[in-house]
């Protein structure tokens, strides 16, 4: 997908960010903007800190260095009402779903509405149910999360993340554990919401088909170098990234094949054909 010039107003700015767990630096020197209305992917190999970046942006952890600005406001410095105001712009779907187990699926999606709006019970019910319909879970509304399959739980979590129509939706590995068809449906859902409601999506994933389908831009992190190694549209990175590792990542090559130029082109072609 080509980058849309209208998607250029930064809504999240990450400046000189570093993350550390117990004194051990896991990521450093991250500086990038996420623009209003784009689908922004945080990608990279396993254990490179994708989810770590996400959890810092949504304010669960404080960065070891640097600042994270949401609409110009520093989320780490914000307190009380200011902080709530920032969080109100976010919708987050966690990797494991994180649905509240003692509530039905419908009640899970209703909860943010109950807390933040003045709508009546009937109004919240129909809004929440419509959200569930969007993730194809209308029939599961009255069930408890434990009665759902993993993929259904994940979709319910996405419905809950979107229940207040937040400006920015964060999805942590939304397609992990989903079958290819459900996962493709999810991609279409993201695109639809992105286009018709102008929601910004920040998605942590390493599923290449999904990245090529939905991403405006991809931030690529590398575990070895503990920092970002690329930030651009996925097609550009696949075809012309100066970094061999990044090209390898987007061409889905095994480690041994990185040096063979002819092999690389062949794979690039076949990948391009499929997507």
């Amino acid at each position: 997908m080509k980058q849309d010039p209208s998607k250029s107003r930064p809504i999240i700015q990450v400046q000189g960010f570093a993350a550390a767990y117990g004194g051990r630096t896991v990521l450093k020197d991250l500086t990038f903007d996420i623009n209003q209305g784009e689908v922004f992917i945080i990608g990279g190999g396993s254990g490179c800190g994708k989810s770590t970046v996400l959890k810092h942006i949504i304010g669960l952890y404080d960065p070891a260095a640097g600042r994270i600005l949401v609409d110009g406001q520093d989320i780490t410095a914000a307190q009380g009402e200011d902080r709530l105001g920032i969080l109100r712009k976010f919708g987050v779907a966690y990797q494991s779903g994180a649905l509240f187990g003692n509530m039905t699926v419908l009640e899970n999606v209703r909860l943010p509405l109950e807390e933040y709006t003045a709508f009546s019970d009937a109004q919240m019910d129909i809004i929440a149910l419509t959200k569930l319909r969007q993730v194809s879970l209308e029939q599961a509304a009255g069930k408890l999360p434990s009665e759902l399959s993993g993929g259904m739980q994940k979709r319910a979590a996405i419905a809950r993340a979107m229940s207040l129509d937040p400006q920015i939706v964060f999805l942590d590995e939304p397609s992990a554990g989903l079958d290819p068809i459900t996962s493709a449906d999810l991609d279409e859902l993201i695109l639809d919401l992105n286009r018709s409601l102008n929601m910004t999506f920040v998605v942590v994933t390493h599923e290449l088909p999904s990245i090529f389908r939905i991403a405006d831009r991809v931030l690529v992190l590398d575990a070895a170098r503990k920092t970002m190694v690329a930030l651009d549209a996925p097609d550009t990175l696949r075809d012309s990234s100066p970094d061999a590792w990044v090209r390898q990542f987007f061409n889905r090559q095994a480690t041994g094949e990185a040096t063979s130029a002819s092999n690389e082109t062949a794979t690039a072609k076949s990948a391009g054909g499929k997507i």
Partner: peptide
Amino acid sequence: DGAGLGLLSE
């Protein structure tokens, strides 16, 4: 938005 879609659903 989602609320509006809810209204149409109703």
